[in-house]
Design a protein around this nucleic acid. Structure first.
Lengths: 207, 207
DNA sequence: CGAAAAATTGACCAAACTCAAGGGTGGTGG
DNA sequence: CCACCACCCTTGAGTTTGGTCAATTTTTCG
């Protein structure tokens, strides 16, 4: 599927979850005044919409932001796999718990961190998530977003985000250009962000 | 149990969930700089910590803020009740999905709403949640918090929250005093907040 | 090449924070 | 009964952070 395809709209009735197989996606909510808050960027392996099966309808929208593969999975199929494969069921539970942990950290980010620290935290989180997926993020990583989308995730205007990115660049911490983050000094960036990756850690013992 | 009792600290290892039976509680995260972000105020009937069973340890802290009853429930007991009572299992799923929806709305609140609108939204949400629990919130409701805690929930300083509360009072929308909100004009407040309560709605058909 | 999208910048403004000082209020012990 | 203390609330003055408006430049892509 191409970039910028809408897979779920707010208030859609839902019978499937969506399994991201490759590429970048985002989930968001719109506001009456036209604003948008990006809630998360589900990555390959992530499952979107588990809770909306229970609620009966989507409270958020889902969109691809790069070329992406996203597979719908019916509630019935999900229930079957859960029933027949306890280890998979546990993995699903863990995945969902981690999603909530990421959402929670995002909330903290918006509520209690300055634009600069918040942006730094976001960068480290992305790098860490990609690293756990097996990507090498030492020097940086692809993040195929424009600054509008990034700003909507970070609760900033795109203009202010632009200035924050310049600060990061001028402090030789990280550079964002053409959909790529280059990290110059990950140690300093982690320190700036006060990053504690415990919420991303895989479970103690999992298949 | 009395007010201001800590039930779970961040990073505690966890074998139980906590069922709030009566009173007000809050869950929060602390920041390296001493700041605090309150994530939610679980009310009677809410269950705290389901996802931490899966993760093995708590990523948040839980505290009572008023006189409250909170019952621990072991993972084993929870699994048993799930297995034996499908309707209860469904209710638990729904409750958890709703918690995530509330968290999500809180995130939107912090990311994209002004202090005034955000505070208004919070008030309406509380009133609505209490109403769904059977309380009469037409004129207002008890909210046994101090302004520090409320500010930490809303991502504001207590000083600024105080000014926002004054604005609400002077606009004849709502008054907060001595742990009570009095709502003067709920219609106008809803409008101010752009409140859409869909995320709180009970499921289409539930026991 | 040329149009559209995205990024960047400047000047100015508004929202929210900081610092500092008072005021209430309820509880406790003298 | 009152003085005192702890905790919370309130307000003012000044600063900082982030937002708004309005260009201009750069990049992307057909």
């Amino acid at each position: 599927m191409g970039a910028h395809q809408q897979l779920v709209r707010e208030n859609d009735t839902i019978d499937d979850v969506f399994v991201v197989q490759s590429g970048w996606t985002c989930i968001y909510k719109l506001l009456p005044d036209g604003g948008r808050q990006v809630l998360a960027f589900p990555l390959p392996g992530d499952i979107v919409g588990i809770s909306f099966l229970t609620l009966g309808r989507a409270l958020i929208a889902l969109e691809s932001i790069s070329e992406a593969e996203v597979s719908p999975l019916s509630a019935a199929a999900l229930a079957r796999v859960r029933a027949n494969h306890p280890r998979v069921a546990r993995a699903l539970d863990w995945s969902h718990a981690r999603d909530v942990a990421i959402l929670t950290e995002h909330l903290v980010n918006l509520g209690r961190r300055s634009a600069l620290v918040r942006t730094g935290h976001f960068i480290i989180e992305c790098a860490e998530r990609l690293r756990l997926l097996g990507f090498d993020t030492d020097g940086g990583f692809d993040l195929p977003l424009n600054q509008y989308l990034l700003a909507d995730a970070l609760g900033l205007t795109s203009i202010h985000l632009n200035r924050v990115l310049r600060q990061l660049r001028e402090a030789d911490l990280a550079t964002f250009r053409a959909g790529k983050f280059v990290i110059h000094d990950i140690k300093a960036l982690r320190e700036l962000a006060g990053f504690d990756g415990a919420y991303l850690a895989p479970p103690p013992r999992m298949p």
